[in-house]
């Protein structure tokens, strides 16, 4: 937690804009993300939140704007000026990306253990015993029984696949993890388990997270800060409970008042 209050941001985003032809994906988005901070991007479908997430994670080049990231050596680097090899290394080691559909983030035809071990090999681990031991440990941390290590994810339930995807991402101890609707499409009881697991892992590992969600309950449970997007622009931002309990913009008030109470 101590890093969280340091003065050096991990990610510095300035004026990020992405057009699709003459249609706006996202426009003029600026913010800073600090070590250990969880930022939720909320908004309805088509508001530009996934476009922004893809720009941040170098999966989609912005039309304009700059994104700088603090490398492990402390230097701020412009992500779109990194060489291809540097960028790939960053994505495989220092970053994680949790997709809504686990099949997009896993290799479905290799075993659970290999899914986790693959990222370790990418950072140079060649010792089979060590890789298997670490993979077993991580399966345990995401509550997958050790005897499933040789099964492939096609035989896993949706919730298990999502937990496996999380283990695969976290095994290299990334500092920044992007999540795109990580609980979308799961049963509520499965969601609750996954959320609790994410909450604990994020706190224990001191991860910085940018999470896209349309579920305000997910944002409340996991995030420190919220950005509300509409029509490609950030319309309101602030401390999570402040934005949810005292929303200022008409659209945010509509979002908050649309939550079903149980």
């Amino acid at each position: 937690m101590t890093d969280f209050f340091s003065d050096d941001p991990l990610l510095q985003v300035n004026g990020v804009t992405r057009y699709y032809g003459d249609r706006i994906g996202c426009r003029n988005v600026s913010f800073q993300l600090w070590p250990g901070e969880v930022l939720a991007i909320v908004g309805e479908s088509g508001s530009g939140k996934t476009t922004l997430l893809n720009c941040l994670s170098t999966r989609l080049a912005p039309t304009a704007g700059a994104i700088e990231y603090r490398m492990r050596d402390g230097a701020m680097r412009n992500l779109y000026q990194l060489g291809e090899a540097e960028r790939r290394l960053l994505m495989r080691t220092d970053w994680g990306f949790v997709h809504q559909n686990a099949a997009d983030g896993l290799r479905m035809t290799v075993s659970a253990g290999a899914n986790v071990g693959e990222r370790l090999m990418a950072v140079g681990d060649r010792h089979y015993g060590h890789i298997r031991e670490t993979a077993t440990d991580w399966l345990g941390r995401v509550e997958i029984e050790a005897d499933r290590i040789d099964d492939d994810p096609r035989s896993f339930s949706g919730g298990m696949r999502q937990r496996l995807q999380i283990a695969r991402n976290l095994v290299t101890h990334p500092r920044l993890v992007f999540m795109d609707e990580p609980t979308g499409g799961l049963d509520v009881s499965v969601q609750a388990r996954l959320l609790d697991l994410l909450r604990r892992l994020v706190a224990d590992l001191g991860l910085s997270v940018v999470i896209v969600t349309h579920d305000l309950a997910v944002a409340r449970l996991l995030s420190h800060r919220i950005m509300v997007m509409r029509h490609g622009e950030v319309i309101e931002t602030g401390l999570t409970d402040q934005v949810l309990d005292d929303p200022r913009e008409p659209y945010t008030q509509l979002l908050v008042s649309s939550i079903l109470q149980v």
């Binding site: 937690m1 969280f4 209050f5 388990r193 959320l195 609790d196 909450r199 401390l239 402040q242």
Partner: peptide, 24 residues
């Protein structure tokens, strides 16, 4: 926001009658 979170950790406490339950 970061400053407020820091204050809530070390300086300002809040006791209410409603518990926000965290699963598990």
């Amino acid at each position: 926001p970061r400053k407020i979170l820091q204050l809530r950790k070390d300086v300002i406490g809040y006791v209410s009658q409603f518990l926000r339950v965290i699963p598990r």
